[in-house]
Design a protein around this nucleic acid. Structure first.
Lengths: 194, 194
DNA sequence: CTTTTATGAATGAAGG
DNA sequence: CCTTCATTCATAAAAG
């Protein structure tokens, strides 16, 4: 095993090799604090903007309305929007915070409050909030189930190296749950849908 | 237990053993999402600035892919094995066969069996199977809709999506949820700016 | 190498 | 709550 400068550890025991990302507790703490500061700045900026532009009624140009794509607009017809609600990043932060706060059971009254609170950051309805909590819980629950059943196959080499000439049959490492790296991409132009 | 036995990994190759703290895939995912969210907020703020200041020198500043796999890019290593599953030809064949067999409804139990069966032909998880059936069904259904000649007259046609009546005003944004890092109290911004 | 297509995965919403 | 559906996003694979 060797450790390079960039907190990557190469575990190489005989047959296969595997890279894992490592971090000390101290590094984690530093990171966490930095992110927290980042969050604070962002939120304050958003609020600042909101108060500064409150008289302009940003309702139409609301944050995150990136899907008001020029393509549709140039098309000359309808404001093809989308029907399904999508939480803004700020809303998500708040929701997640509430979720992990242990207020596991969103009561009817809570829903109202939360909705009211979140509406400061974008259009939202009580149903949206309700559904979000329902889905959030169900999803996290399912994830727990998935991450356990591995009794049979003792050990197999972990094919984490993408560059290996091996075809792309499977690229899953030790874990079985499937996570994918998806970045919120607000800039991408939707060119699919023929 | 998570996939890594509590993010401690015991590296024991031959000689001595050693424990290091590592981030689980899930933690990495969480971190990435969190950062992505803040990146999104910042970008929105930039856009807001643009519309507010209505300057002239714009449209060129595309922040584009700042968050295009920042984590993966780090260190230039391809450790981040999180790629999407791709069925092997054999697996695909079996899946197709099951799909045609009229077992239209893949129950939870069936999923397990199928997964177990397919795992002999390559890496796969229950989620993969589940998703596959979901997608398969949705896809074939849509195909039929398109090809289904319900065209009474050549009036309204095409346009996979329609401008359905807007049930409510929705702000639009794209982001994913999930984040576990608790924002500390230093983040005492009052969210209501009105 | 760039663009297009096919498809695995994520998720809001509805049904039971 | 839990399951299912529909829609969308991102990326591997294919085409140029």
């Amino acid at each position: 095993m060797e450790q390079d400068e960039g907190n990557n550890i190469n575990i190489n025991n005989g047959g296969g090799g595997m890279f894992v990302k490592v971090m000390t507790d101290e590094q984690m703490e530093v990171l966490r604090k930095q992110i927290a500061i980042y969050a604070t700045i962002c939120e304050q900026l958003v609020d600042l903007h909101k108060s500064l532009t409150s008289h302009h009624d940003l309702a139409g140009v609301r944050l995150g309305n990136i899907y008001n794509d020029p393509l549709v607009a140039s098309g000359g017809h309808k404001f093809s929007g989308r029907q399904r609600w999508t939480p803004t990043p700020v809303q998500l932060q708040i929701l997640e915070r509430l979720f992990e706060q242990g207020n596991g059971t969103p009561s009817k009254q809570k829903i109202k409050e939360i909705t009211s609170e979140l509406s400061q950051h974008g259009q939202i309805s009580e149903t949206n909030v309700y559904n979000w909590f329902q889905n959030r819980r169900a999803r996290s629950k399912r994830k727990q189930q998935v991450s356990a059943p591995n009794n049979n196959n003792g050990e197999s080499e972990v094919e984490t190296e993408v560059e290996s000439p091996k075809p792309q049959q499977n690229s899953v490492s030790t874990a079985d749950d499937n996570m994918c790296f998806q970045t919120p991409n607000m800039c991408s132009v939707d060119q699919r849908a023929k």
